[in-house]
């Protein structure tokens, strides 16, 4: 995780320096604020990754070590979900949601119906180990 965190931290610091130069040179609030926000988007993930790297006792994972063999990664990677209809239902809900912004609030009814059922579906699916 070390190099990953350095990547984000570098970007955050770089945008910070750029932002400081930009602010003192231009005094433009818009750009300076957007650059300041970008600094946080670099630093927060960077510090988060570094925090976990430190908490692991500066442990290098098998994927961080050039000399690692495939066997070292043996075991379970993770649980991956199977087919699921709910992402599509949720997206349809979102679509009705934005159409409600254009054509009238009555479209919020299908938006909420699709959105809520998708949320329930998602949750129940995760709890039972999920299937459509």
């Amino acid at each position: 995780m070390k190099k990953e965190s350095i990547l984000f931290l570098f970007l955050g610091v770089f945008w910070g320096l750029m932002g400081v130069v930009y602010w003192f040179w231009s005094r433009d609030v818009t750009g300076a604020v957007m650059l300041a926000g970008s600094v946080f988007l670099g630093l927060i993930p960077g510090l988060y990754l570094y925090y976990w790297y430190r908490r692991s006792g500066y442990h290098l994972r098998a994927e961080d070590r050039p000399d690692a063999s495939i066997e070292e990664g043996a075991g379970v990677i993770d649980a991956f979900p199977d087919n699921s209809i709910w992402p599509m239902i949720f997206a349809i809900g979102c679509m009705f949601g934005v159409l409600a912004l254009v054509f009238g609030t009555w479209l919020a009814i299908p938006a909420i119906a699709f959105g809520l059922s998708a949320m329930i579906g998602f949750t129940a699916e995760s709890r039972r180990g999920g299937n459509i």
């Binding site: 063999s69 066997e71 379970v76 993770d78 649980a79 991956f80 979900p81």
Partner: peptide
């Protein structure tokens, strides 16, 4: 069902 995925094996190991 959720799929629990193991790491693929190394083809060269005996």
């Amino acid at each position: 069902m959720t799929d629990v995925i193991d790491r693929p094996v190394n083809l060269d190991s005996d």
